[in-house]
């Protein structure tokens, strides 16, 4: 087996490329495919070079070609194919296309330390949901129910009946609205973050978050502060998730 190291390495490389290129839907963006293939190439090279026998068998065919111990047509084919492949790769990178240019995207735009809510400066660092802090079960249920009403009057058109980000308008928007049931969205965030996103909407996104041109309205123009906090209570309750919180007892200090 080890004497086929070169062929096996090549076969593994091609198999991984084919799997990543054809086996995953929607297709993997080219930037990630490139990253993966570079890593796979390194992994294969590390593996073959980490053992003298394997390494010997890996370089043997290459040496045979370059030292002229293979038939001339094979030598010519390799020496033509390598620059041709490099040329093709270069062409793929520089050929003109009509796609929008690459732009880095940020899934969780970083919140500012302060933002303006109806002319008042809100400190993000200390912001907490006043309706949850120290609330009894009865008032929590009442506010959550009020939040549910607000949600279905305003938010569900985009964020969906079951908070899955699949409302009536969802597919008309890019990016599509957040799916609150996805563990990667609100369950990873503190309520203060969600309050900032709802209050300031798409226009409140920081520059670093472009081209995350969200269609989210600036809800502070339409809802009261209490209504926004109520909606937040509801989206966590309704999606079966909990806001990101910290066990203050383990941190050593309270801030």
């Amino acid at each position: 087996m080890v004497k086929w190291t070169f062929g096996l390495a090549l076969a593994v490389w091609l198999a991984v490329l084919a799997t990543l290129k054809l086996g995953i839907q929607p297709p993997i963006p080219a930037s990630v495919l490139m990253l993966y293939m570079v890593l796979v190439t390194i992994a294969i090279l590390v593996f073959v070079a980490a053992d003298e026998t394997r390494f010997g068998h890996f370089v043997a065919p290459l040496r045979a070609v370059y030292e002229g111990r293979v038939p001339r047509p094979v030598q010519v084919a390799v020496l033509v194919a390598l620059p041709a492949l490099a040329g093709w790769g270069t062409w793929l990178r520089v050929a003109p296309n009509f796609d929008a240019p690459f732009e880095p995207r940020v899934v969780h735009p970083e919140p500012p330390s302060t933002f303006t809510f109806n002319g008042r400066t809100v400190d993000q660092l200390t912001l907490k949901n006043p309706l949850r802090e120290g609330a009894d079960a009865e008032s929590l249920a009442r506010h959550t129910a009020a939040g549910k009403t607000t949600y279905y009057r305003n938010c569900f058109f985009c964020h969906g009946d079951a908070l899955g980000g699949d409302g009536h308008f969802a597919l008309a928007l890019r990016p599509i609205p957040a799916n609150f049931r996805d563990v990667g969205t609100i369950s990873m965030l503190q309520e203060s973050y969600v309050f900032w996103r709802i209050s300031t909407g798409g226009p409140g996104l920081p520059n670093g978050a472009t081209p995350w041109h969200s269609a989210m309205p600036v809800w502070q123009n339409y809802l009261t502060e209490e209504e926004i906090w109520q909606v937040i209570l509801y989206i966590y309750e309704g999606s079966g998730s909990t806001p990101r919180t910290w066990d203050e007892g383990t941190g050593g200090h309270d801030h």
């Binding site: 995953i24 839907q25 929607p26 297709p27 993997i28 963006p29 080219a30 930037s31 990630v32 990253l35 993966y36 890593l39 796979v40 992994a43 796609d99 929008a100 240019p101 690459f102 732009e103 880095p104 995207r105 940020v106 899934v107 969780h108 928007l173 890019r174 990016p175 599509i176 957040a178 990667g184």
Partner: peptide
Amino acid sequence: GFLTWATPRSIIATGGEMAAMGGSHHPFLG
């Protein structure tokens, strides 16, 4: 492990790729 660790949460993508992914992130790579 390396591939998993290097998988970005925020992916660089062209407009066409973003449309195919449905916007926010890749459903599988995510």
